[in-house]
């Protein structure tokens, strides 16, 4: 159960950096009005960032060559998406996703 000094400083330093990125926008938005164009710009953050987070798990970056496909994730995405359309329930979607991935890993 040891803690090295270096790890502790990394935890505190990175914690501070992460906390500031999360909290400073709240303080600024509370005290200043956002211009209309910025509010419109930000209205696209949810859909774009969620799409990008999904894509991040399907394609992997390689320096000097095209991104490779993570086949497991790509295959599991299809039934998960179908489950989303049919069930419209987050818990069903997540459980179907996990089961499909377990089956894919079993077969492949």
């Amino acid at each position: 159960m040891a803690i090295t000094m270096k790890v502790m400083w990394a935890i505190i330093g990175c914690g501070l950096v992460t906390w500031l990125s999360r909290v400073i926008p709240f303080v600024l938005v509370k005290n200043f009005y956002l211009p209309k164009w910025l509010i419109r710009y930000l209205s696209f953050v949810p859909i774009v960032i969620m799409t990008a987070l999904i894509m991040e798990n399907i394609f992997t970056h390689h320096a000097g060559s095209l991104p490779t496909v993570n086949l497991d994730n790509l295959l599991a995405t299809v039934p998960t998406f179908i489950a989303a359309i049919i069930s419209k329930s987050l818990i069903v979607i997540v459980v179907v996703g996990i089961i499909c991935m377990a089956l894919i890993r079993l077969v492949l």
């Binding site: 987070l53 497991d72 998960t80 998406f81 987050l90 997540v94 996703g97 996990i98 089956l103």
Partner: peptide
């Protein structure tokens, strides 16, 4: 832990949240 498909829970959740957001 990958053998149980648990790591895909995160991706599945974002797929779900994205679709539910869209509709």
């Amino acid at each position: 832990p990958k053998a149980f498909g648990l790591d895909f829970a995160l991706v599945a959740m974002f797929i779900g949240l994205l679709y539910l957001q869209m509709i």
